[in-house]
Design a protein around this nucleic acid. Structure first.
Lengths: 206, 206
DNA sequence: TGCCAATGTTAACACCGTTAACTTAAACAA
DNA sequence: TTGTTTAAGTTAACGGTGTTAACATTGGCA
């Protein structure tokens, strides 16, 4: 359906883009369907032709976010096991710091509960899968201890997620203020997870 | 000021209690000042005599939450360094799992940003202080490596916070489904942070 | 060409937080 | 005891929200 005075012609995509811009700048709570429609120059109910409700629009934004996160994690160099693990952690945290409002939406919990939007759940799993694969590889090649995989992934994910959340909420210093915090944190965890007892890094750094 | 047909007499406290009940059951987004006032049997603007706005009411609830968390952490047995550290972690996570909606409010980030409600910030710091003190003690007595204190606290806090958040949002199995996950996670981190290389737990005994 | 389905419209409902202006009554001072 | 101040309620109203119902326009296809 082409553009007309009556028919917008590209509403779905433009609404998505505009909403994403608002989200990134002011957070999910600043997204109002009425205001969004007004900005685009269309009536508010028109949006309901393309999104079943406000929440499903947010879900699409979050899906976009998970795809972006997944891509960032996929770009990490996987040749060396240790560098791969640290790289994943740093990429994860830097994504959150680059897109705090998007990250908060993705892991909001109450705003987008699990189990309501299947595509969203799948996008989240898909990003998480890379972390799990990296750990599984490090374990298989003998670099990591042979502890249960779900224990190791839960630990790693908890660490990077917690660090991300606490940083973007201001409870921990940001990467600008403490450039090596994320690396130190991931290294510290790794020291407990490597199979050989000689910790390669990270001791008595000032 | 005593109770009357006109004057409620106990509005501040009852509003607080009622709001906390709604929060715990349905989350912060379910708290509506108008509905709250109606439940109590008072007009909505009456609430503004006791709370400057909705957000400051939420802030008070979050302050209560931090005090509860702080109390839970303070009850942990501090005699053995390792048991103290694991105990703190478990207490932290179990608090979040017992009060998911309250925990989400406390660490919402965007709903109650840092720096807006000084008493809230202080309550948060006060709870965090216990974690830091425990780590500092473990370091001083030689149980933990002598890495920078802020690095170790950031790591520990990130881990327990991430684990809490991911668990209550359903991304990781709850304590019911995986009773030993939290303990395994904290132990795994600890293995990288202890000064002596003989990890006391959790390894398949070399 | 005529119809159908997609995609817009306006009007309306039921909420929401918040403020202004006014009222009641409790507490305190003369 | 009386008068006044002030804390703590009231109603009415403003501007905002998501969402639905009913109707209008129009592109694409038989």
């Amino acid at each position: 359906m082409a553009r007309t005075a009556y028919h917008h012609g590209d509403l779905q995509q433009q609404a998505h883009a505009q909403a994403m811009a608002i989200l990134r700048e002011h957070g999910d709570s600043a997204i109002s369907l009425r205001a969004l429609a007004k900005q685009i120059g269309v009536s508010a109910p028109a949006l309901y032709r393309h999104f079943t409700d406000r929440e499903s629009l947010l879900a699409e934004l979050a899906i976009n976010g998970f795809e972006g996160l997944r891509q960032r994690l996929q770009e990490v160099d996987q040749r060396d096991p240790r560098q791969a693990l640290i790289g994943i952690g740093l990429a994860y945290v830097s994504f959150a710091q680059d897109e705090p409002n998007l990250y908060r939406l993705m892991f909001g919990g109450r705003v987008l509960p699990l189990g309501v939007h299947p595509r969203l759940d799948e996008a989240g799993k898909s990003a998480f899968q890379i972390l799990e694969d990296t750990i599984a590889a490090g374990r298989l090649c003998g670099y990591l201890k042979s502890l249960p995989l779900n224990l190791m992934t839960a630990t790693a994910w908890s660490l990077v997620h917690g660090l991300s959340q606490l940083t973007i909420d201001g409870h921990l210093p940001s990467a600008d203020a403490e450039p090596h915090l994320a690396e130190g944190v991931t290294s510290l965890l790794l020291d407990g997870a490597v199979a050989h007892t000689h910790s390669q890094n990270n001791e008595d750094t000032p």
